[in-house]
């Protein structure tokens, strides 16, 4: 059965500009947020979104099955993330990790004052520290709520590999955040 989303995709494929605008408007915040969490950088997130939707707009008529749109969109977005990350690593020798330096000598109490924004910033900075393949799985699972099967399809990996990467990613995150003394007791007062 054809859902309204699929209908929209079909209309966009047939050249309906309004449907294309609507479709992009619907998915743009999700792609942007995914890229933002991947890079922790609004400009790069905007670049990724831009490149993704330009690519999607170009190749949309070739999409045969509208059901595959979501996977295709995220695969394109994640590929754009990879490309940008590679380009960035080439030009930038070291990542900005100031916010993640372990502060073992400082007392615990200052963290009690961290507000939600600050915690968000630290967690995003920690995300930048874990390997790319673990980060992308965390972003897709935690923030996009995709099933393991869908992530495996997007990344063209086995489900078990995806789960394994997520497992190590979560462990790495815990280690990093503990180094920053971002304890859950302090976070959820």
């Amino acid at each position: 059965m054809e859902t309204p989303d699929h209908k929209l995709i079909r209309q966009a494929q047939s050249g309906n500009r309004s449907a294309l605008n609507q479709l992009f408007g619907q998915w743009y915040p999700r792609v942007y947020n995914m890229a933002f969490r991947y890079f922790h950088d609004e400009d790069l997130a905007a670049d990724v979104s831009q490149q993704t939707f330009v690519a999607i707009q170009k190749s949309l008529p070739q999409l045969r099955d509208p059901q595959a749109f979501k996977s295709w969109l995220f695969r394109t977005a994640i590929n754009c993330c990879h490309t940008l990350a590679r380009r960035r690593h080439r030009h930038q020798a070291s990542m900005e990790v100031i916010s993640l330096q372990p502060k073992r000598d400082q007392p615990v109490t200052p963290y009690q004052e961290l507000d939600r924004k600050e915690r968000s910033r630290i967690v995003l900075a920690a995300l930048q520290e874990i390997p790319e393949e673990q980060r992308e799985v965390i972003v897709m699972k935690e923030y996009e709520g995709l099933k393991f099967r869908e992530i495996a399809e997007i990344l063209q990996l086995s489900e078990n590999t995806v789960k394994s990467r997520l497992y190590y990613g979560l462990k790495a995150m815990r280690k990093l955040l503990e180094d920053c003394r971002l304890h859950k007791d302090l976070l959820y007062e």
Partner: peptide, 10 residues
């Protein structure tokens, strides 16, 4: 911790 990350307005 991950759930604490805010959604940004693009």
């Amino acid at each position: 911790w991950l759930a604490d990350v805010e959604t940004v307005q693009p």
